[in-house]
Nucleic acid binder design. Structure first.
Lengths: 211, 211
DNA sequence: CACTACATACCAACCAGTCCGTATGTCCAA
DNA sequence: TTGGACATACGGACTGGTTGGTATGTAGTG
């Protein structure tokens, strides 16, 4: 008989931290940041408050961590579209829309929603740090989207001039707004319809020999 | 000389109720619904909690009242665009965009934001009643927008077919998303750029002899 | 042993909501 | 015209529970 019990309390700080952040992300997606209490986070992560405040100085600190976690997850998700420079920029953009449409199909986690959008809406006015974190992630998203548009603009003739940066913000806002209003609806069908329209709009910017 | 003192304790329930609702609207716009306490509402309205709960059964009840107040204000604001059936539908749509652009110019009340968007984001997942109220107001907005698009579609030849309803939701989501992301930015310039792009997009749907 | 990772117990402030007292306006009868 | 009955409007103290955060203890680890 070994002295160690079968499942010794797994003393794993990195894993514990990850559990706390992921629990926070889940709660923010369900009920928002303000309505989420530290106690709820702790019980969702099967931990106590003492442990929580050992890993995070404040509730705001884990809000920042949740925003960053979400940003990294999003970057990884979208990487399939924009990370391959060999891919045709228009194909990149199509993959990009496919990924967004795909994220409306996971109904198990409730409606399609976004931690960064949630935090921007709730906390931009009261927490400069959270606001800055959201700004950063939104700018990352936009920068990558603008890069695809710019590359497509260089490769293909355009039907009318457009600013890739402005267009990227347009798409970002449409995406965030779709998730927001999508929460009030029973199906994600409207979100998908918006993405189809946006895709058609982007396609319409370029003249391709194929079509 | 009237018997009434110059400033009698203003026993005016309708006015009191209005003050409570408007204070709530202001606080929701600044810091969101969850982060707004009944005590804050009371002190903003210079009232006490006893009075508050005389007029409203719960915090949720004044949330509903705030949503409705906002919806009515919005309807009144947009009425200048869509209430005149004699107006050319494309002119209606242009006025519509002018009104939205105009509401980004009031910087005195902080960034351009929306009570219904706030409540949708924060409370759709936890309060069916608030969610229903938001759904209703968003559908009103979309219905009126779709009506303008439909009228324009009947009057002018179109460059490509489109569904007025779907397009209206597209515009609504863009508008909400613009206000959301606009909170993270220092100027409303991005919101205005989005509205300009949306206006150009709508214009591009129709063939007008003028252009 | 020193240090980290976590638990327990606790705090003052705050939360939504209740209770009750009081001031005010309304209606009706004398 | 007076005055009392009654409902409404509001003030203010209070409650049980929750909030974010702290102080302290203890067990595992190098």
């Amino acid at each position: 008989m070994s002295k160690k019990p079968a499942t010794p309390p797994p003393r794993n700080p990195a894993e514990t931290r990850r559990r706390l952040v992921e629990a926070t992300v889940g709660l923010i997606l369900k009920q928002g940041y303000s309505a989420t209490s530290v106690d709820q986070i702790c019980s969702a992560a099967s931990l106590t408050k003492g442990s929580f405040f050992h890993h995070f100085d404040s509730k705001e600190a884990i809000g920042l961590a949740a925003a960053d976690w979400w940003g990294e997850m999003g970057t990884a998700l979208y990487a399939a579209a924009w990370a391959d420079p060999a891919l045709d920029p228009l194909d990149q953009l199509h993959r990009f829309f496919d990924i967004m449409i795909g994220s409306t199909e996971r109904v198990d986690t409730g409606p399609c929603t976004c931690v960064v959008g949630m935090l921007s809406q709730e906390m931009s006015g009261t927490s400069p740090d959270l606001r800055a974190a959201c700004t950063r992630h939104l700018e990352d998203w936009t920068r990558n989207t603008a890069a695809m548009l710019r590359a497509a603009k260089e490769k293909y003739p355009v039907t009318r001039d457009f600013d890739p940066e402005e267009t990227a913000w347009f798409l970002n806002c449409l995406w965030q707004g779709s998730m927001l209003i999508g929460k009030t609806r029973n199906t994600p069908e409207m979100i998908r319809a918006n993405l189809r329209q946006a895709r058609a709009w982007v396609d319409g910017l370029f003249i391709t020999t194929a079509s």
